[in-house]
Amino acid sequence: MALNPPRRRFPSTGRLPCGRSVDALWDSVVSGAELDHHSASCPHCQTALDGLRALHSATRQLVDEEVSAPPSLLERVMRVVRTEARSGETVPLVSGPDPARISTKAVAAVVRFAVDTQPGAVLRARRCEVHAPVDAVDVLDVRVEVLVPEGYRLHEAALRQRIEAVVSAHVGMRLRELTLDVVEADTREGAT
């Protein structure tokens, strides 16, 4: 069965039923030029012109409007970026009906902080790995690389004690295994 083609309100050529181009009417609205005799009396042109004038007015208002981001937006975006960066891998912090987890990056930052702020020492923490053992709860396994100056005599027991104390104070968990990879820094001139 043959069907009539669907009727379009406007031909796809952008022309009104009276044959006038919508683009030409839009140009006249934008330029403010006087309408010719046909457009001034044609109902199709008048209807289109009303719509085009409203559109032109609205776009002018939008262009003139000063848009400024709320002052807190940048801060929120930066917090989102930081949260996304830190919330990748987590380890259990509390188990039970209301579980809690903590970012391994946050725990690693605590461990590095403990090393870097060891009183009376010039130590630098580098890579730090944090794992939750599968066969134990409420404890963490930590491995941290510690950079010491050349010839420096590291008091490893004191450093271990400090790391455990700082992790306990900030995180509230015990360390089951704490592995220190001590690396001596080459402090000779020109060494990197």
Partner: peptide, 28 residues
């Protein structure tokens, strides 16, 4: 859990907390 259940009357099945950052303060 207490606030939502008592103030809104909504039953809370679970509260999941994720700690994404820790403010660092030297023990000293």
């Amino acid at each position: 859990r207490d606030n939502v259940q008592h103030n809104l009357g909504v039953r809370v099945d679970e509260v999941r907390v994720t700690v994404v950052d820790v403010a660092l303060i030297p023990p000293e």
